[in-house]
Nucleic acid binder design. Structure first.
Length: 297
DNA sequence: CACTTGACCTGTCCGC
DNA sequence: TGCGGACAGGTCAAGT
């Protein structure tokens, strides 16, 4: 999915349109993806108004006037697209839109508002979910939210927090650790690879083999790269779009992600694609030297 | 325990 | 063109 910068871009877009709208009806065809009972939906969602749109890690959180909140996780292929009226797509930007018509066959949930605006939750692979939970104590009660590590783009997030979270994971590969949402919330495969390249750390390096200088560089790089990506509307590798159905342009500036076979922009060597922490991983072996002894694969 | 691997799904791309 | 297999931005349960 959408990682922190993509989810934040969706949040910013939804926040322009949704607050104040009242939910008139909702339809969904994928019970696993929207597991709440019809009764809860009828009493806590239908007829309530949207207060605002928040984000925690990769989760969109929409508090409602009913005292309940919608939680939405886009996972790998989720989209949240708003339309001002159901005949026009992309909130008035049809020419920039990646999708031409909604709902489409990946639409799992459709929210209809009193003014006939709509919010479509699309999810090709059906990994994503929408849940309705009580707003009071949500961040401490929700099983997913309560485990999340700090928000990396908050002003008060420090290198010391980052280093301390890593200190109990010395035997793990650095990529596995920064992908762990309990260490810090929001990094996914794209920004892990880009951040590690910027810090000149090999993704398969064991944490214990990495110098403080490099870890500090990684901490800084992750924050800078994700901030830059938000300013560019995120990354559209496959089907990510923002709340208006538009693609993001960060990948044009990516140095290694999806660039296997191309020349490294720093040293001119070849970028290769390997597997680390079970994920496709992009690396320049000349810029990102591995100290950890290679156990044969 | 800490870490790794498969499962959850659908769609697309690549090689034969 | 058709078909099988690998793979895709995330997370969890089950395995070692």
């Amino acid at each position: 999915m959408p990682e922190l910068p993509e989810v934040e871009t969706v949040r910013l877009g939804l926040n322009k349109f949704l607050p104040g709208l009242k939910v008139k009806s909702v339809s969904f065809d994928w019970p696993k993806g929207f597991p709440n009972s019809k009764r809860l939906v009828d009493t806590k969602l239908i007829g309530s108004s949207i207060l605002k749109v928040d984000r925690r890690g990769k989760v969109i959180i929409i508090p409602l006037s009913s005292g309940y909140s919608l939680l939405i996780h886009l996972k790998m292929t989720g989209q949240l697209v708003f339309t001002k009226d159901h005949d026009r797509f992309g909130a008035g930007h049809p020419n920039d839109s990646l999708v031409s018509k909604l709902p489409d066959r990946s639409t799992r949930v459709t929210f209809v508002f009193n003014n006939d605006a709509r919010l479509y939750f699309n999810d090709q692979r059906k990994f994503g979910w929408v849940k309705l939970e009580a707003s009071n104590g949500l961040y401490e009660n929700n099983a997913f939210l309560k485990k999340l590590g700090p928000e990396p783009l908050e002003k008060d997030y420090t290198y010391e927090q980052f280093r301390n979270a890593l200190s109990s994971r010395k035997k793990s590969t650095i990529k596995a650790v920064i992908l762990d949402q309990t260490v810090l919330a929001g990094v996914g495969n794209i920004y892990a690879d880009e951040g590690l390249f910027a810090a000149r750390i090999h993704p398969a390096e064991k944490v214990e083999n990495i110098s403080q200088i490099k870890l500090r560089r990684l901490f800084k790089a992750l924050i800078e790269i994700m901030s830059l990506s938000i300013s560019l509307g995120g990354s559209s590798d496959r089907n990510y779009v923002d709340a208006e159905g538009k693609r993001g342009s960060y990948l044009k500036f990516a140095k290694v992600f999806r660039r296997e076979g191309q020349d490294c922009p720093e040293c001119g060597g070849k970028i290769s694609k390997i597997r680390v922490a079970g994920r496709g991983t992009h690396v320049c072996n000349r810029c990102q030297k591995l100290k950890t002894s290679i156990d044969k694969k």
